[in-house]
Amino acid sequence: MIAVDFAYRRPDTLAGAYELFSDLARRGENPFYLGGGTEIVTGARTGLFTPSSVIDVKAISDLRALAVHDGRLILGAGLSLREILAKDPWPLLSHILSRIADHSVRTQITLGGNLVGSIPYREAVLPFLLTESAVRLYGSGGDRWVPLAHVFTDGSLRLAVGELLVALSVPEAVTRLGGVACKKTRFDWVDYPLVTVAARRQPGRRIPALAVSGLTSGPFRALRVEDALLHAGPAEIPLRELLPEAPLDDRHGSSAYREFVFRNTLEDVLEQLGPNG
């Protein structure tokens, strides 16, 4: 049971959602956008979040897009992971999504909620970090597409107050390139990752593009690891120097253990992709 009381609201348009958020914030309230609600509901129950209102945005038509437009695949932030898996527009993304939570929670988790949420894993972002992805944002800066790399920094999506993540897009050609994903958990099949690695072939390069979750406090594109792997194997590269920060050290796994698992996962991924990345 959630002890605090808050209002539930479901606007029909992007403008309606943003105006409502801004209006409530101006009045000193603490509104939250609601995607699948899996993080907000559990967080509100334990007192981690104390929303005054939730603004359910996932049914707004712009957040429901799933189409190819001008050579780019567009995925609405309000789509549930199950809905994306059912259409399977990008096999590497499906591979990653199919290992997030379990089938029934995937019916609720939205693409946008997974990227914006506060847990450090945000595994759904991994395939998007491997290519020139863009995000559609709606808020004080207007309705605009920006490169994902400009707003996804230090492992999380930097949104302005009240800004909505509307959709993501990638070049459609990229969705046809080979790729693999490998998730290692501590014990159970359904669990947050110790390490998840997504890898995509890079035409003309021996080492694939790599993106990593679980190892540090947020997902990252491992460009420096990719470069180092051109000269040495996963067991030899000076990993600590190549990561954005030290590996996590928590009850799921010590820093040293995560590093060990990461090196092994890299071996697995390179082997699965075969020679020439």
């Binding site: 029934s104 929670v105 019916t107």
Partner: peptide, 25 residues
Amino acid sequence: NGDCGACTVLVDDWPVKACLMLAGD
């Protein structure tokens, strides 16, 4: 917390954990 599934119901024919869904949803 979404882990055990004891609260599972069907919503539009799909299993959903009712402890994670707001009634408004």
